[in-house]
C-alpha cells in the first residue's frame, strides 16, 4: 500500500514537473504562433482586403478554392515537388553523411562547410546564377549535356522542365540542414557498437545496415517530418526560377501553394481567401504528419 501511494504521488510530481519544463516554450509558441494561427483561421471566414472593414462570408472562401485553377495547379505542383525532393534529399544526406562523418578523411571539417554554403547564399544571388547555369543557350548545364550529346533543354521556359529545375534547386538548397542532423546523429552512435562489429569481422555495408541505419532512425524520422513540412511550404526555391510575374504557362507548371497564398494575400490583398488556402495546406500537412507519427512505431528505433 505505501509503495503504491508513493508511486502515485511520484507520478503526480512527474506530471507537475513535466508541465513546468515545457511551460516556457509552450507559452511562447502559444502567444506568438498558435494564437496568430487561430486568428488567420478565423480570418478565412471573412472577405477582407487588409484595409477595408472585414465582411463575414461564411465558407465562401473555401468554396472558391475548388474552382480556382491556379490553386489546384499549385496543389499538384507542391505534391510532385515534395514527392520528388524528400526521398532524394534523404538518399543524398545518407550517402554523403556517411562520407562526411569519416574522421579519417583529412580536412573533412572543411569539406562539410562546402555543403553548408547553399543556405548561406543570398536568394537573389542564387536566382542570378541558377538562371545563368540553366540558360538554354549559354548555360553550363546544357553545355555539359552537350558533351553527352544530349540536345539543349529549355530549363527555364518550357512548362515541362520548370518544375524539374525547381526540384534540382530544392535539393541543392535542402541538403545542408539535414546533413548536419545526420552527421551529428552518426556521431552520437556509441563507438562500442562498431568495435563489437569489427571483432565479428563485419563488412562496411553490414555495419551500415545493421548498426548505423537502425540507430539513425530517430534522426531520419525528424528529417522526414520536417522536410515534408518545409517542402509543402516551398516558396524561395520556386521564386528563384519564376520571379515575380512569370508567363502564365510557367506559373501553372511550377507555382507552389505558398506562392499562391503570397500572391493572394500580399500582392492581391485578398487576405481572407489566402487564409483559407493556408488552412487547407495546414490540414493536408497535419494529416500527413499524424500518419507519419502513427507509422513511425513500425520503423523508428528508440532506446
Amino acid at each position: 500500500m505505501p509503495a503504491k501511494a508513493m508511486r502515485t504521488s511520484f507520478i503526480k510530481k512527474e506530471g507537475v514537473q513535466g508541465w513546468l519544463m515545457i511551460l516556457p516554450n509552450t507559452l511562447g509558441l502559444l502567444l506568438f504562433y498558435l494564437i496568430p494561427i487561430g486568428w488567420s483561421i478565423i480570418l478565412s471566414l471573412f472577405k477582407w482586403n487588409g484595409l477595408s472593414k472585414m465582411k463575414f462570408i461564411g465558407f465562401q472562401n473555401f468554396g472558391l478554392l475548388f474552382s480556382d485553377a491556379s490553386f489546384l495547379y499549385s496543389l499538384r505542383n507542391t505534391f510532385i515537388y515534395s514527392i520528388a525532393v524528400v526521398p532524394l534529399i534523404i538518399l543524398f544526406v545518407l550517402c554523403f553523411g556517411v562520407l562526411l562523418a569519416r574522421d579519417e578523411i583529412k580536412g573533412v571539417a572543411g569539406f562539410r562547410t562546402l555543403y553548408f554554403l547553399p543556405v548561406m547564399t543570398m536568394p537573389v544571388a542564387a536566382a542570378l546564377i541558377w538562371k545563368w547555369l540553366l540558360n538554354s543557350r549559354f548555360g553550363l548545364v546544357n553545355k555539359f549535356l552537350g558533351y553527352l550529346s544530349i540536345p539543349p533543354i529549355n530549363w527555364l521556359t518550357s512548362p515541362a522542365y520548370v518544375l524539374p529545375s525547381v526540384i534540382i534547386i530544392g535539393i541543392w538548397l535542402g541538403v545542408a540542414y539535414d546533413l548536419i542532423i545526420i552527421i551529428s546523429g552518426m556521431k552520437g552512435i556509441p563507438g562500442m557498437y562498431y568495435e563489437a562489429a569489427d571483432i565479428d569481422g563485419a563488412s562496411g555495408f553490414r555495419k551500415f545496415f545493421s548498426i548505423t541505419l537502425p540507430l539513425l532512425t530517430p534522426s531520419l524520422f525528424f528529417i522526414l517530418i520536417t522536410q515534408l513540412i518545409s517542402c509543402f511550404q516551398v516558396f524561395d526555391t520556386v521564386s528563384i526560377i519564376l520571379g515575380a510575374d512569370p508567363p502564365g504557362s510557367l506559373w501553372n507548371a511550377a507555382c507552389s501553394v505558398v506562392m499562391n497564398i503570397y500572391q493572394n494575400g500580399f500582392v492581391n490583398f485578398r487576405m481572407g481567401y489566402s487564409s483559407a488556402q493556408s488552412f487547407m495546406l495546414f490540414c493536408i500537412v497535419l494529416l500527413i504528419t499524424l500518419v507519419q507519427f502513427k507509422v513511425q512505431k513500425k520503423w523508428v528505433n528508440y532506446a
Binding site: 512527474e14 516554450n25 504562433y33 498558435l34 496568430p36 494561427i37 513540412i229 497564398i261 494575400g265 495546406l281
Partner: peptide, 26 residues
Amino acid sequence: MHFKGQNIVFIVLLTVLMVPVQMILV
C-alpha cells in the same frame, strides 16, 4: 517523462511549423 496530455500538446505545438510565416505577421 510521462504526464497527462503530453502527446496532444506536442502535436499542437508542432502545428506551428505547418502554417506559412506570412500568415502570422499581422
